[in-house]
Computed example of a mutant assay.
Amino acid sequence: MTALPILPSLLAVAVAAPISALITWTSHPLLQRYALARPNARSSHTIPTPQGAGIAVILATLVVALGWAAWGLVTIPAALVLATIVIALVGFVDDLVSLPLFTRLLLQTACVGAVVFTAPGDARLVPALPLALERCVIVLGGVWFVNLVNFMDGLDLMTVAEVVPVTAALGLLGWWGDLPSSAALLATALCGALLGFAPFNKPVAKVFLGDVGSLPIGLLLGWCLLELAWSGQIAAALLLPAYYLVDSTITLFRRIARREQFWLAHRSHFYQRATDNGFTVPRVVGEIFALNLALAGLAILTVRAGSTTVTLLALLAGVIAVAVILRRFSRPQAS
């Protein structure tokens, strides 16, 4: 596997950040007029706030990644680019006028399926399984991942606090040759785009990503993690997004067990319960950011150590770290 040179990665961050910031700033008046998110009983914000600035993040990411691809530095799958655009358009329409659940899931499944089923046949996670069955399972997991990133984008800077450490870690692994250069370059471009968006989304946010941002971010990040898993680093691919995976999955099964309409918006996630339990928004995203830095360190350790024992210990440490944060968020803070 060819390592991604440091300079293109750093340039990807340096170029994507101002592009994202510029598009966010210039699009703000239009979003203020046509895509206003009004607070309701399930919201974490209290004043009407424009949504849809995720279009800046996605455009900046794709422009930089495709620019590097045009120079011959990397190869970005056409199916991934097209799927990202389609799923962003679906999110944009949903930001303006809510789409039916079945329509959203059908289009998301088609996008994820296009990416997964056009991947090389030798990209395998469990070679003992039939290829078609493995790919179907990956598509199911991919649709869930795309949606859980959307579900978890419910606080100011939340997605930045999650995705920046993950993409930075993926960039490092690309530099060391442990991740395909295409995935590493895309990850660093996404990292830069989110850093450019961050000043507009810090508490109290001036603008939100919206579904046009959170859904394609989930697709792009999921593809990068899948490439890491296909490279034989399944433990690292699970550790990096561990907080999002655990919070969303536990919340989903709890709602199903309570026979709630789990597909509707709610305030049941641990990070949402934390704000109800007395945590401030900066404290919640700060603790999640610190947790993700720790998880990124553990993920890198599993890859670089190349030891089964180290991998098992790192997975155990990651589970404990996530469990501690979830427990803290679910308990009221002392006055």
Rank of each mutant, 00 (worst) to 15 (best):
M1I: 05
P8W: 01
L10I: 06
V13M: 07
V13S: 00
V13P: 01
A21Y: 14
H28C: 07
P29R: 04
L30R: 12
R33A: 12
Y34H: 15
A35Q: 07
S43T: 12
S44P: 13
H45F: 07
T46A: 13
P50H: 02
G54D: 10
V57K: 02
L62H: 12
V64K: 02
L66P: 05
W68R: 09
A70Y: 06
W71S: 14
W71A: 15
V74F: 01
I76M: 07
I76A: 02
P77M: 00
A78F: 03
A83G: 08
T84G: 15
T84D: 11
A88G: 10
V97Q: 09
L101C: 00
R104A: 03
L105H: 04
L106N: 08
L106Y: 00
Q108N: 07
Q108G: 06
A110M: 13
A110G: 11
C111Y: 06
G113L: 03
A114I: 04
F117L: 13
F117V: 13
F117I: 11
A119K: 05
P120A: 10
G121M: 04
L125H: 03
P127K: 00
A128I: 10
L131E: 15
A132H: 04
A132C: 00
V137P: 02
V137D: 01
V139Q: 02
V139G: 05
N147I: 02
V149Y: 08
F151P: 01
E162I: 11
V163H: 03
L170W: 03
G171D: 09
L172T: 13
L172M: 14
G174D: 05
W175R: 13
G177H: 01
G177F: 04
D178M: 11
P180Q: 11
A184Q: 05
A189Y: 08
A189Q: 10
L190A: 05
L194H: 03
L194N: 13
L195V: 14
P199W: 05
P199I: 11
F200T: 01
K202E: 09
K202I: 12
A205E: 06
L209Y: 05
V212K: 13
V212I: 15
G213P: 14
P216G: 10
I217G: 06
L220N: 09
L221Y: 05
G222I: 07
G222M: 08
L228T: 02
L228D: 02
A229H: 06
I234F: 11
L238P: 06
P241D: 00
P241M: 01
Y244I: 13
Y244M: 15
V246Q: 03
S248F: 09
S248Y: 07
S248G: 09
I250V: 15
R255Y: 05
I256L: 12
A257L: 14
R259N: 15
E260G: 00
E260R: 12
F262M: 04
L264Q: 15
L264F: 10
A265K: 10
H266S: 08
H266L: 05
R267M: 10
Y271W: 09
Y271V: 06
A274V: 05
D276N: 07
F279G: 10
R283D: 15
V284E: 07
V284Q: 14
V284Y: 10
I288S: 10
L291V: 14
L293R: 03
A299K: 07
I300R: 01
L301M: 14
R304F: 02
A305K: 08
T311V: 12
T311K: 13
L315K: 12
G318C: 08
V322P: 08
V324Q: 06
V324Y: 09
R328D: 14
F329L: 04
Q333W: 07
